[in-house]
Amino acid sequence: MNINKIAYSAFIAFVASLFTLVSISALSSSEREEQDDTDLDPITLDELAEHDSAESCWKAIHGRVYDFTDYFPDHPTDEEVFLEWCGRESTEGWDNKRPGVPHSARAESMLDEYLIGRLVDEEGEPLEPEAAPEEIVEDEEREARLSPAEDERLHRALLGLPLDGRYRGVFSDGGEMQVNVQFDLRDGRMSNISYRYLAYRGVDYRQLEEDDELYAVLEQHRQLAERLEGQPVTAIFALYEPERLADDIDGYSGATLRGNKVHSAFRDALNRGVYSWP
Rank of each mutant, 00 (worst) to 15 (best):
C57Y: 10
C57F: 10
W58H: 13
K59A: 13
K59D: 14
K59V: 11
K59S: 10
A60L: 03
A60G: 05
I61G: 11
I61T: 13
H62P: 03
H62Q: 15
H62V: 07
G63T: 08
G63Q: 07
Y66R: 12
Y66C: 13
D67M: 06
D67K: 12
F68T: 08
F68H: 05
T69K: 11
T69N: 14
T69C: 14
D70T: 14
D70V: 02
D70F: 07
Y71C: 09
F72N: 08
P73G: 06
P73M: 09
D74F: 15
D74C: 01
D74Y: 11
H75V: 04
P76Q: 09
P76K: 02
P76H: 02
T77D: 09
D78A: 12
E80G: 14
V81F: 01
V81E: 00
F82Q: 01
F82W: 09
L83S: 11
E84V: 07
E84S: 04
W85K: 07
W85C: 07
C86E: 08
G87P: 04
E89C: 00
E89S: 05
E89P: 07
S90F: 05
S90W: 06
S90E: 07
S90C: 04
T91D: 03
T91F: 08
T91H: 06
T91G: 07
G93E: 09
D95T: 02
D95P: 07
N96K: 11
K97I: 03
R98Y: 15
R98V: 07
R98H: 13
R98M: 15
P99D: 02
G100E: 03
